[in-house]
Structures are given as structure tokens and as C-alpha cells.
């Protein structure tokens, strides 16, 4: 399927476990931006979409709530000002902004929901700060509970972050420049660091949902690396099949043998896209379906080939 506007943000609707649903945010400076709510019917092979208007500005990053399927956060560029803000939205038909977390001093980059949904915490990354919010759904307001900064020479900028779904969700990992850092959110202190994880900028990382110390990362040096956070000196495995920047890496939630960095995975190469692919995500409903989004606004919903599927299962 195709949108008219360029797009960069993609997320699966995490709280939805019955249907294959994805959310796509468009990125256009001058035209009105939209959030597309895409419903893929597996049996009929039909795609339905709902469009919500996102008036605030172009969307750089999106994340759907793990508790309430109607909640999502967006990080957007405030119109005509080049300021990055984060906002929390509720998804009924009228689609209204319930509140926005204005961090005027920082440029909000990512907002991530607590992975298991048992607490109402939100994690935000802004410039060189990690922020934790406590969300009160009733009064639809969020309170800043903790924050910490990253100090080093130059002006470090976080490129991405991820909750660790293990250890009762008390750890997060962030990446800046070519290092990966692990943090304990109870004390907000750094617990481990992988220096020079990649030759150049680290673009994305993800935790293995089934093995508690395993972490995947990708970067501008065209490599995908797998790490054990207990031993940060050597990667477990390096994949260098890519020929340009690797923008995103995601573990499949059900079968950790699979991961799908964009452009071309290890399992299979997907070449439907004409423009750069910036985001991929697995569906939370069907473990064999994932979506990828390219800059020209084309969303492709892919299915793991049957042969591969049986190879993994059997």
C-alpha cells in the first residue's frame, strides 16, 4: 500500500493481540501530517486503514502503548520551529491529544512504553538525557519521576534506546555515537558500556525477548552485531550482509532465532522498496508477519516464507 507523504515512523499496535495492526506516522513539513491505523486481514488479504490527523507537526518516532491499545505516543517536530516534542494521544474516532510533555530545554527523540504493561512508566530520550515519566491515565497527565544525563566530551546525543524486558524491567539500554550503554533505572546509573560497538554511529538496538542477556545492535558501518551484556568486549556474532547503513533491528517476540533488519534480512531479501527503508516492526498478533516502511511512504507487510517457517519450527 502507499501513502502520499514521506514517512519514517512505524509501530505495531502492541496491546492488540488478535488482529494484525500497524500504526504509521507521516513526515511532511508543509502538508498536514497523519497517523495511519492499518488493519491487515490475514485470511482475505485485505488492508483497511483509518486516518487520523496529527496537527502538531511531522512525526519522527511513534510507540504504541503496551497496556491500552488506544494509547500511543509520538515524537514530532513542531511546525516551522525545528523543535522536537513528545506527545501522548488517545485513539478514539475523534483522535485528540490528551496532553503533551513539553521538555523545552531538550529535543525529545524517543518515547517508549514499559514493555510488560504492569506499570505506567514511560521512558523518554532527549538529547543526552534519559527521562522517566509516571503516567496517570485518569487525569491524563504525566509526572517526571527520574532523569539522568550523560556526561562526556563533545555533545553526546542519544540515537536510540530500549527497555530490557527481563529483570523486572529495571534496565534500559541506550546508544550514542558508537557506544552502547546500559542503565539501571532504579538508581539511574550506568551499569555497563560497550565502547566502539560499531565502527560508526549506532542506529538501533533490541533485546532478545527470551534470552535475558542478549542484545542486538546495528549501525552505519553496515553491520548487525549481537552482544552478551555480561561480556561487552566481544560481539557474539557479526552479520555484515548489508551494504549501507542499517537503520533498524528487531527481535521477533515469539521466536528469537529471527531478526529482521531492513533492506535485506539474513533469512530472506526483500526488495519491494524503491526508496530507503527506515523502520520495521513485527506484528504482535501473528509471529510470522512483519511490516516495513520506506521513505517514499510505501508500507509493505511481509510474511516469513513458508519454507523458512517450517525450517525454524521443525
Amino acid at each position: 500500500m502507499e501513502d502520499e507523504a514521506p514517512a519514517r515512523a512505524l509501530t505495531s499496535q502492541s496491546a492488540e493481540t488478535d488482529q494484525i495492526r500497524f500504526l504509521v506516522g507521516t513526515q511532511s513539513l508543509r502538508a498536514e501530517n497523519q497517523v495511519h491505523h492499518i488493519d491487515f486481514d490475514d485470511e482475505m488479504n485485505i488492508i483497511n486503514k483509518n486516518v487520523f490527523v496529527h496537527r502538531e507537526g511531522e512525526i519522527w518516532h511513534m510507540s504504541a502503548s503496551t497496556i491500552d491499545k488506544n494509547l500511543l505516543t509520538t515524537c514530532y517536530n513542531k511546525k516551522s520551529k525545528a523543535e522536537m516534542k513528545a506527545a501522548l494521544w488517545r485513539l478514539p474516532s475523534d483522535f485528540d491529544s490528551s496532553q503533551s510533555d513539553d521538555q523545552s530545554s531538550h529535543q525529545a527523540l524517543h518515547v517508549l512504553w514499559h514493555p510488560t504493561g504492569d506499570s505506567k512508566s514511560l521512558l523518554g530520550l532527549a538529547d543526552n538525557h534519559i527521562l522517566l515519566w509516571e503516567l496517570d491515565t485518569a487525569s491524563s497527565s504525566a509526572k517526571l519521576t527520574a532523569s539522568t544525563g550523560l556526561e562526556s566530551k563533545g555533545q553526546p546525543k542519544m540515537t536510540c534506546g530500549r527497555w530490557n524486558p527481563h529483570h523486572n524491567c529495571t534496565q534500559i539500554a541506550t546508544a550514542n555515537d558508537n557506544c552502547i550503554r546500559g542503565w539501571d533505572i532504579r538508581s539511574m546509573e550506568q551499569v555497563y558500556v560497550i565502547e566502539n560497538a560499531h565502527g560508526q554511529l549506532v542506529r538501533d538496538l533490541d533485546f532478545n525477548p527470551n534470552k535475558q542477556y542478549y542484545l542486538a545492535s546495528c549501525g552505519d558501518d553496515c553491520k548487525v552485531k549481537f552482544w552478551d551484556t555480561r561480556n561487552t568486549t566481544e560481539p557474539l556474532k557479526v552479520l555484515s550482509e548489508h551494504s549501507h547503513w542499517v537503520w533498524s533491528v528487531k527481535y521477533n517476540h515469539f521466536h528469537d532465532q529471527m531478526e529482521d533488519p531492513p533492506k535485506d534480512g539474513v533469512i530472506a531479501t526483500y526488495e519491494e522498496h524503491e526508496d530507503s527503508v527506515y523502520a520495521v516492526d513485527w506484528s504482535t498478533a501473528d509471529p510470522w508477519v512483519f511490516a516495513s516502511l520506506s521513505y517514499d511512504g510505501r508500507l509493505v507487510i511481509n510474511r516469513v516464507p513458508r519454507a523458512e517457517k517450517y525450517k525454524i519450527l521443525l
Binding site: 502520499e4 507523504a5 514521506p6 502538508a31 511512504g297
Partner: peptide
């Protein structure tokens, strides 16, 4: 007219 049309034609 959004110039994406143009770029698409060009492509």
C-alpha cells in the same frame, strides 16, 4: 502540487 508526483514520474 506535492512534488512527490514529479519525483515519482522522474523515477
Amino acid at each position: 502540487i506535492d512534488n512527490s508526483l514529479m519525483s515519482n514520474i522522474q523515477k
